[in-house]
Design a protein around this nucleic acid. Structure first.
Lengths: 145, 145
DNA sequence: GGGTAATAGTTGTTTTTGTAACTAACAACG
DNA sequence: CGTTGTTAGTTACAAAAACAACTATTACCC
């Protein structure tokens, strides 16, 4: 198992990002999965509605970069859990506007607290400046695509 | 769709990391998928063998943080494509040592070139210092888990 | 208007992943 | 030795994701 080649996989960005994202997601996932039996797309939809208020599935997809089938199923699951409701838009009956129920808003607030705490723990080892730089650079990477 | 809540999802690290990792992976994936019909775990295994030489599935799993079933499947796929061979170890007949075939090494060298170019493109907008900082911070995030 | 294309969302099918149970080989301890 | 436990790797089954085809509604445009 001697070093045969000097390519450093640990520093290759797609690999490194995947490892970091995986680690960061795993910890947070345990929390929302355990407490509310949610999937990743479900909390994302929940957060979008919690943050931005009423939106359509299409809006969420555009903003989060999620495919409509994923959203459709997440919405159905959240509806079953009575965390959101839908209503057809009168101006365009293809669209439906989604909004959280009171129970949904309560779950959102709870998870939001948890998210804030979790994020704080993740950057605990970093200086405030480093954390800000990290977020800025990640945003630029996420943006170009 | 007015701002109802001031939590910034775009800056929440698990979300931000997932978005950046997704974007970075997608571009690279197109390349290895198109050219060699590989899956993510397959190129990872290939790279491990290309970089470190002969290893067992267990070693790769430990190093890459991958579950043994995933590796088992990737190894089978790479074997079918005649990119690697296995041989039982005599000192412990449970283990098998994996190594790339000449064809496997050629594919590795090709993908490695591509990876280097791709990585360079990703950090093209960043200063050398920023890129180094980014990698360092991501490594620390990937490490803690 | 009437036909064609485009869009919002759903459903069905195929891949891929995750999880758990399994086989084969070795280790440890009486 | 022999029974019990552990490890390497595979296989079978369940969950989730990706992809394609579908329905219903609206937009375009001749």
């Amino acid at each position: 198992m001697a070093q045969k080649d000097d390519f450093d996989l640990q520093l290759f960005l797609p690999y490194l990002l995947a490892q970091a994202a995986e680690a960061a997601s795993a910890g947070f996932q345990r929390l929302y999965k355990q407490r509310y039996g949610m999937l990743r797309t479900e909390w994302r939809v929940l957060f979008h509605l919690g943050i931005y208020g009423e939106m359509t599935a299409r809006d969420i997809g555009a903003r989060a970069g999620l495919h409509k089938t994923k959203i459709s199923r997440a919405v159905a699951a959240l509806e079953t859990k009575r965390l959101l409701t839908r209503s057809r838009k009168t101006e365009d009956r293809r669209q439906e506007s989604l909004s959280l129920t009171p129970a949904g808003r309560a779950v959102y607030r709870d998870l939001r607290e948890i998210a804030e705490g979790y994020d704080a723990r993740l950057v605990a080892g970093l200086s405030a400046e480093e954390a800000a730089t990290l977020r800025r650079l990640l945003q630029s990477l996420a943006g170009q695509s």
